[in-house]
């Protein structure tokens, strides 16, 4: 009986991934992580489509501590890689990458930021 299992194991052969010695890429279309292209993003024109569809608030608008400026943040820590933002973005500024080496040692390294300056009137009000 044990022999049968051994034979089976032998027939399966070596299936172990070559990673980390060599890369082991995921199949095409795998939802690894969203990526943001600042050149295409229309956040300046008031677009917040992706922020509205993101359930875990991985995409969010934040106010910079000076209290006047805002920025768009894509934070991969809470991101569930659902791809809703990619489908919703009207300009193609977001797309899905299939890479999987996402671990970071500091939360900040999981963030992509697009700064956005609000129009400030002369008396300091927005």
């Amino acid at each position: 009986m044990e022999l049968g299992w051994l034979l089976r194991g032998w027939r399966t052969g070596i299936v172990t991934t070559p990673y980390p010695t060599r890369p082991d890429p995921p199949p095409q279309g795998f939802r690894g992580r969203p990526q943001l292209d600042g050149e295409r993003c229309r956040i300046d024109d008031g677009c917040t489509v992706c922020v509205e569809v993101c359930l875990p608030r991985a995409l969010r608008l934040e106010t910079v501590p000076n209290g006047l400026d805002r920025r768009l943040v894509l934070d991969l820590l809470p991101c569930i890689m659902c791809g809703l933002c990619v489908q919703a973005c009207p300009t193609g500024a977001l797309h899905m990458q299939s890479d999987g080496e996402l671990a970071v040692r500091s939360p900040q390294d999981a963030q992509t930021i697009v700064p956005l300056e609000m129009e400030v009137s002369s008396d300091g009000h927005i």
Partner: peptide, 19 residues
């Protein structure tokens, strides 16, 4: 052996559904 069968199906899923 059963883990091998399971993993093959998960890879199939990744190909078909992206997840």
């Amino acid at each position: 052996q059963f883990d091998v069968l399971k993993e093959r199906l998960l890879r199939l899923n990744a190909r078909l559904a992206g997840h």
